[in-house]
């Protein structure tokens, strides 16, 4: 292979050294956190005062991640089966088909995405209820 001395090609890569004097592109993670966007698909939330227990979310979930369980109190009088969904995050793929199919839009996805635990059983996730918070705020 014949190859001529390519001085430009040898020296030019060193221009990257100028980035040594620029601001870092990364975040100081534990102190500074990335903001997720509004429609980010994170953990589930369920407004139990709107949930009618129809089970459509359980039906469309292809990973069988959603179970319908008995809540302590049924918050919606129109809940036809008196059941609410629970998600197994070991199986969920965050496709958000369950929220698309929800007829009353009670099931939504939040912006939170980080969950750390040493206990694998904790990934069986009881969906937090948002109806309570709204009452406290209002």
């Amino acid at each position: 292979m014949n190859w001529k001395l390519d001085i430009k090609g040898i020296l030019e890569p060193f221009t990257a050294l100028k980035y040594l004097f620029k601001q870092p592109a990364t975040l100081l993670y534990p102190f500074e956190k990335r903001k997720t966007t509004e429609n980010y698909r994170g953990f589930h939330r369920n407004d139990q005062s709107k949930c009618i227990g129809c089970g459509l979310c359980e039906d469309i979930c292809m990973n069988d991640a959603i179970d319908m369980i008995k809540p302590e109190i049924v918050k919606n009088a129109k809940n036809s089966s008196e059941l609410i969904p629970r998600v197994d995050f070991g199986r969920c793929c965050w496709c958000s088909l369950c929220t698309d199919v929800c007829p009353t839009k009670s099931l939504t996805l939040s912006n939170e995405y980080s969950m750390v635990s040493t206990d694998p059983n904790s990934f069986l996730y009881n969906i937090p209820d948002t109806s309570k918070k709204e009452k406290q705020n209002g």
Binding site: M1, W3, D6, K8, G9, I10, E12, P13, T15, A16
Partner: peptide, 18 residues
Amino acid sequence: EYDRIFFNNAVFKKRAVG
């Protein structure tokens, strides 16, 4: 910038040509 560090890089050319 990518041209400078990668596409015109003499070492990359030496390895990749042929």
